[in-house]
Lab assay of single mutants.
Amino acid sequence: MATDAALRRLLRLHRTEIAVAVDSAFPLLHALADHDVVPEDKFQETLHLKEKEGCPQAFHALLSWLLTQDSTAILDFWRVLFKDYNLERYGRLQPILDSFPKDVDLSQPRKGRKPPAVPKALVPPPRLPTKRKASEEARAAAPAALTPRGTASPGSQLKAKPPKKPESSAEQQRLPLGNGIQTMSASVQRAVAMSSGDVPGARGAVEGILIQQVFESGGSKKCIQVGGEFYTPSKFEDSGSGKNKARSSSGPKPLVRAKGAQGAAPGGGEARLGQQGSVPAPLALPSDPQLHQKNEDECAVCRDGGELICCDGCPRAFHLACLSPPLREIPSGTWRCSSCLQATVQEVQPRAEEPRPQEPPVETPLPPGLRSAGEEVRGPPGEPLAGMDTTLVYKHLPAPPSAAPLPGLDSSALHPLLCVGPEGQQNLAPGARCGVCGDGTDVLRCTHCAAAFHWRCHFPAGTSRPGTGLRCRSCSGDVTPAPVEGVLAPSPARLAPGPAKDDTASHEPALH
């Protein structure tokens, strides 16, 4: 009773807030009518008042009428009001819900409408889902798969039609296919003929059939049928067999079959498995989609049935006599038709004709302190090069084509190399640097090759510096006499390219 009084008091307290929050009759008014909170006449009256005075006034009048009803109607109103779709449509209802007392429970059932309790003993237990329907569909599909699609060729003596089998029958139906081979029951999904010589313990000319048996419980189990008994694959494991010639990621696949039913060829011909030897223990289905393919039931050349050999690369099948050149017997292992072999060759040939990528240039590290003349020119003028003790990398590039010797140069053309002071002394051009340390401070000019250098860098042994005729380390061993002091540049003949010694390969005349 306390809860009923509290709900009535809360409705009177929030009546105006609810009326202002509800700006549309749908969905709240319609939901109240659906849950029998508002009768039909009051529903029509509220809609009429909404058209006349507006939605807030109409709902305020409806809530005032609701306060005169019993506690069950008020409880049902609060339940409908706080439904998710009403809270989404009328956003101003959320503060009312947040301020609702926590001790007021809106989930209690309506009085007088409590459903009768059902004894637990009368409640049926839930049924577990079964796979009976899938099993029945598999039974119905198996006879259809064994139905012949056409008439065999005159040369083929193997013609068999499976008798119709009602689904209610649980007995196995067997077809006489000759040579002791028996087909599987209607619940078998796949059958492959297997030679009895590969099964340990088999006697006589009995041949087993590799099947997948579907049981009534819905589970499946792969086994071997020899005669009327089934054997699990673990009985046929043979770890010492060295003649297993397995197909790549293979499961067994029928390579020879008669049109209309699988079996042995007439005249004692023995149908073979995809792999010879003992049956392997793992009978998992292969991951290669080509091995799941269903080959055609007629020859791809003459479009006739009979004894066919199936290609492992495509769905086509052929007569042995229709092949070019014809085959006398079934080859062992994987067999592919000429079209598949030709496609494989065409895929391999473009790969062989692809040009080989060019090898990157060989990189040879230079000892610290040495650099090529090109690196000396590329440096920024007026700045010493940083990191001189790091190992430089010199790339061996292809030799350029031989060019004509340089033409003779006048001494005026070499004027930018040297600057003559007032006393006739050779001065260095701006930006000249030593080729060893890279520093341009207090550098000297070689009178023979006009290269800038430090005496301490080229002659670290402490050799005394002569007063005139300074030469760098590369030119100090040259027998050519030094030019007379005061000459602007060496003779043009000295600039012609010539053979250089091994220790002077990195010091070429550089223009500054």
Rank of each mutant, 00 (worst) to 15 (best):
D4P: 01
D4C: 04
A5R: 15
L7I: 10
L11A: 00
L11P: 04
L13F: 11
E17M: 08
E17N: 00
V20L: 03
A21N: 05
A21W: 00
D23C: 01
S24F: 02
F26M: 00
P27K: 02
L28C: 01
L29G: 01
L32H: 00
D36P: 02
D36I: 02
E40Q: 05
E40V: 02
D41V: 02
D41A: 15
D41E: 12
K42P: 01
K42W: 01
F43V: 03
E45Y: 01
K50L: 04
P56H: 10
P56T: 05
A58S: 01
F59I: 10
H60L: 01
A61F: 03
L63H: 01
W65D: 00
W65V: 01
L67F: 01
Q69T: 01
D70T: 04
D70S: 15
T72A: 10
I74T: 00
I74K: 04
L75S: 08
F77H: 05
F77G: 01
W78Y: 03
W78C: 02
W78N: 00
L81T: 03
F82V: 02
F82I: 03
K83E: 00
L87F: 01
L87S: 01
E88Q: 15
R89S: 15
R89G: 03
R89L: 01
Y90V: 02
G91F: 02
G91R: 13
L93V: 02
L93W: 02
Q94C: 00
I96V: 12
D98W: 00
F100R: 00
P101L: 03
P101N: 03
K102S: 07
D103K: 05
V104N: 00
D105Q: 00
D105L: 06
S107V: 10
K111W: 05
G112Q: 14
R113F: 12
R113A: 09
R113L: 09
P116D: 04
P116N: 15
A117I: 07
V118L: 09
K120I: 13
L122K: 04
V123M: 15
V123R: 08
V123K: 13
P124V: 15
P125I: 14
R127C: 08
L128W: 14
P129D: 02
P129W: 01
K131Q: 01
R132Y: 03
A134L: 11
A134S: 11
S135D: 15
E137P: 12
A138T: 10
R139I: 10
A140Y: 14
A144M: 09
A145I: 07
G150F: 14
T151V: 15
T151P: 10
A152T: 14
S153C: 13
P154T: 14
P154S: 06
P154N: 06
P154R: 05
G155F: 15
S156K: 03
Q157L: 13
L158P: 06
K159A: 04
P162F: 14
P163N: 15
K164I: 06
K164R: 15
P166M: 14
E167G: 10
S168I: 03
S169L: 15
S169M: 04
A170P: 09
A170R: 14
E171W: 15
E171R: 13
E171H: 15
Q173N: 15
Q173A: 09
Q173H: 08
R174D: 03
R174C: 03
R174F: 15
G178S: 13
G178F: 11
N179V: 15
I181G: 05
S185P: 03
A186Q: 05
S187D: 06
S187L: 02
V188R: 05
Q189N: 08
R190H: 08
A191M: 06
A191L: 02
A191I: 01
V192L: 10
S195D: 07
S195Y: 04
S196P: 07
S196K: 07
G197T: 04
G197W: 03
G204S: 07
G204Y: 02
A205E: 06
A205W: 00
E207I: 02
E207M: 00
I209E: 04
Q212F: 04
S217L: 05
G218S: 07
K222M: 01
C223F: 03
C223I: 02
I224R: 04
I224E: 10
G228R: 13
E229S: 06
E229T: 01
Y231T: 04
Y231D: 06
T232L: 11
K235G: 12
F236Y: 05
F236C: 09
E237S: 07
D238K: 03
D238A: 12
D238T: 07
G240R: 10
N244E: 03
K245W: 09
K245E: 03
A246V: 12
A246E: 05
R247W: 04
S248K: 05
G251I: 13
K253F: 07
P254R: 05
R257K: 08
R257G: 07
A258F: 13
K259W: 12
G260F: 09
G260E: 10
Q262C: 09
G263M: 09
G263P: 08
A264Y: 01
A265N: 15
P266Y: 11
P266I: 12
P266F: 14
P266Q: 09
G268R: 11
G268F: 14
A271T: 08
R272S: 10
